[in-house]
């Protein structure tokens, strides 16, 4: 059933997936937009070389112009450069932290749902993590890990690891519970019984039969997780956990601009649109990938 495609030798499975993905218009648009955002924020600074932290006090609060395509902020810093610099951080943090949380959550969920003996300890562990108050937990992590990480990875990479770690470690629990719930139901299905009766071992069972059937809730968690990670990153900077204060990220640009919403609406619109567009494109990408990966839909 699930691996029906694998049993038909002439065409490779990946080719089928690509064909299905290509025919999914939303997925293609999502992929193009996402790539465009990534290219802009990572390669854009080579073209637009303005320094995102340079204060030009004579050009405060400027509307968009030829010199400043996105305008300037309250200290006269170039908003386009800040958006690109912020995007680099936000997208990297969003993707990495989300991947970490999803990997952790799916693993715990799969193991707890599949192995009855692991269910109790793993779910109690999940409950403990769910119960811990987020802010004090993050503060403890800063106190304990900031200096050692900065010492071994350098200040910038150390901060990045700390932020990604902090977000990842505090946001995997929902995924774990969701995946476990679905696995509990799946493992009683007939095809699992059938697979077991032909002697499939546990590892293969999870990888071949269980995992592909819980991909869609994982995909939803992943898309929502990116948005949550980008916003959480901005919250971390208030604890002094984030990047240095003059370093822009989308979440922080949006937060700082809220007070100026009435006078300079553009300043909330740029980061707001950037975050939404990223999340939307990843969502469509995820939709297409899920359809492409699902052999039942692929056949249609």
């Amino acid at each position: 059933m699930t691996d029906a495609a694998a049993s038909s030798p002439p065409r490779s499975q990946w080719h089928d997936i690509w064909v299905q993905f290509k025919s999914h218009r939303g997925a293609l648009v999502g992929a193009v937009v996402f790539l465009a955002i990534v290219i802009t924020v990572f390669l854009g600074p080579l073209v637009w070389t303005a320094d995102p932290t340079f204060v030009n006090i004579r050009a405060r609060n400027k509307p968009p112009s030829f010199e400043y395509p996105f305008g300037t902020d309250q200290l006269g810093r170039d908003m386009l450069a800040r958006m690109m610099a912020g995007g680099r951080v936000s997208i990297s943090v969003g993707l990495t932290a989300m991947s970490l949380a999803i990997t952790l959550g799916s693993t715990v969920g799969l193991l707890a749902g599949y192995f009855r003996s692991l269910d109790w300890p793993l779910m109690r562990l999940t409950e403990i993590f769910q119960s811990l108050p987020l802010l004090p937990l993050l503060l403890v992590m800063v106190t304990l890990f900031r200096e050692p990480l900065a010492a071994s990875f350098g200040p910038e990479r150390g901060t990045f690891i700390l932020i990604v770690g902090a977000i990842g470690v505090t946001s995997w629990m929902a995924t774990a519970r969701i995946v476990r719930g679905s696995v509990l139901a799946l493992k009683e299905r007939e095809f699992v019984l059938a697979a077991r009766s032909i002697g499939t071992d546990d590892f293969k069972m999870i990888l071949r039969h269980i995992l592909p059937n819980v991909v869609s809730p994982i995909m939803v968690s992943a898309t929502l997780g990116i948005a949550a990670a980008i916003i959480t990153e901005s919250a971390l900077s208030f604890l002094g956990l984030g990047f240095p204060p003059d370093f822009p990220t989308w979440g922080r640009l949006l937060y700082d601009a809220v007070d100026y919403m009435q006078q300079y609406p553009a300043r909330v619109i740029w980061p707001g649109v950037a975050i939404s567009l990223t999340v939307l494109s990843v969502n469509y990408l995820g939709d297409g990938l899920r359809d492409a990966l699902d052999p039942r839909i692929r056949g249609r």
Binding site: L139, P155, S237, F238, L239, G240, P244, P245, D246
Partner: peptide
Amino acid sequence: ELRNVSASVF
């Protein structure tokens, strides 16, 4: 190098 710390800790 700049650093900011939450007021309740600082």
